[in-house]
Structure formats: C-alpha cells, structure tokens
Write a protein that binds this DNA or RNA. Structure first.
Lengths: 128, 128
DNA sequence: TTAACCGTATTATAATACTAATACAGTTTC
DNA sequence: GAAACTGTATTAGTATTATAATACGGTTAA
C-alpha cells in the first residue's frame, strides 16, 4: 500500500499537481514500485483532507501517463517499468536543478556559493 | 530605467508573481538599485504583452513590501536599502535551495549526486 | 494653461482550481 | 445474491487569475 504520510500540502500550488509529483518522486526514489496498491479515492481524500474530485484528477493524470492502472470497481495499482523509473528520475532531477541554477544566476550567485548553500542546508536538515 | 528584457514569462505561475520575483531577484543581484526608474504601467504592459491590471497588481505588492515608491501622476522608483537587499537575497536563496534539497531527498538523491548535477548544469548553461 | 503623460480604481467577462453533493456501474467478499 | 467496497461522472458554487474597457485625478513639460 502506497503511503502518503510524507506528503505535506503547500498552499499556492494546485493540490492535484502536488499529488502527482509526490507519486512520481516516490517512483524515482524506489519507495513506490510496480504493483503497489493505491488507497481508494475516498480514503485518500479523507487522509489528505481534500475533495475526492481533486484526488481523481491526480489519478487521471497519472493513468494518462501510464503510471497508474485503474479499472472501475477495482483497486488502483502503480504501474512503473524500470525504464519509466529512470526516465522520471532524470526528468525531475533535471527540472529541479535547472530551476535552481537559473534562479541563482539571476541573483548573481557564483557556483561555489550555490554548492556551499546546498551542502550546508543538507547538513542542517539532517539534524532536524 | 529598470530593464525587463531578461524576464521570460512561464505558463502555470501567476504573471504578477513572476514580475515581483523578477524585481526582487534583480535587487538581490544588484542589477536593480535604489532610485531606479520603473517603466510606466502602460509601457510595461505593452512590453510584456499582459494586461495593465496585472502590472498594477505586481506594483501594488512591491509597494506594500516597501520596495517600490509610487505616487499618483508621478513615475515609480525602486526603493531598496542595503539592509533590504541583503534580506531579500538571503530569503530567496534559502527558499530556492530548500525546495531543491527537499525534492532531492524525496527522490533518494545523495548530497554528492546533487552537487554534481548542479555543477554540471552550471557549466552546461555557460556554454549556451 | 493645456496637452500628454502618470498612477489608480471600477466593472464585467472568462478560464482554471477546488469544494460539495450526488449518482451510477463494476468488483469483491461473505 | 447482497452488501460493501471500488472507480467514474455530473452538476453546482466559490475563489483566484487574467483580460478588457473605461474613467478619474495628479504631475510634468511645452
């Protein structure tokens, strides 16, 4: 059963997008693997405190991308091949890193300063 | 006169937020300094191809944060003290880096891998 | 002073995101 | 087969984002 305990909803970003991203990142990390069972729409909506329609929207997107297998009446399961897993991992990493690099450059930050900032933050959060 | 040539609007994020962020990053980088003149609402809206109301919303936010000085009938000017500049820089850097670190950790990426990814991307974009 | 600019405000319209309340049909289990 | 689930669809209402079309009054320079 896929766990959503690690998902902390942030204001300002569409909820369905956050759910999709959470699942994709889990797949990239290997914490969500092929065949894993998804909680039902109703259970998940109660768990996250959002509307069932919002959950359904996220699930529909995941299914359209071939990452979720849903059939009316039956439970839903993760569907990820090793190839898909690698592709998702690469795409997400590239996107996140590119966003940061562009932001840093716009602020006139040097590469060394950026690396220092990240390593420091990494250590800092490990203590918490 | 503050230049907005470097601002590339992205779909999915509110335009007024992108404008506010662009100005703040310019202030953090030192490319926008205290007293710099802002293009008029109408000129800027034509330049970016967005509605004047959207520009006005961004300007209202910047003024409420004390970063823009506007008076009816007169032109608008950037208003940044050295203390504000440092504060903005620190806030934005922290926010961006924190977002990346959380994403990386969710995907099971090591600190070394993250640093490598960023340094590579930095070099790669410098060639372009 | 008057014309041309400036910031500001208002009203209306449309698209998207999200909530809310149902309803329906397929699957599973006892 | 019936009850309890499951995914799916529909309709309605609200808030935010953005556009559109004006309008008003202050500032500035010819």
């Amino acid at each position: 059963m896929i766990s959503f305990e690690g998902l902390i909803l942030t204001a300002g970003v569409p909820i369905y997008q956050q759910i999709v991203l959470y699942v994709k990142r889990g797949m990239a990390a290997g914490t969500i693997v092929d065949g894993d069972e998804l909680p039902s729409r109703r259970v998940l909506s109660a768990l996250l405190g959002v509307n069932p329609n919002t959950i359904q929207k996220a699930c529909r997107i995941l299914e359209e991308e071939g990452l979720l297998c849903s059939h009316a009446g039956a439970k839903s399961y993760a569907s990820v091949s090793p190839r898909q897993m690698e592709q998702i991992r690469r795409q997400l990493l590239q996107a996140d890193a590119r966003t940061l690099v562009e932001a840093m450059k716009q602020m006139g930050v040097t590469r060394e300063e950026a690396v220092t900032l990240i390593t420091d933050l990494w250590k800092g959060e490990e203590e918490v």
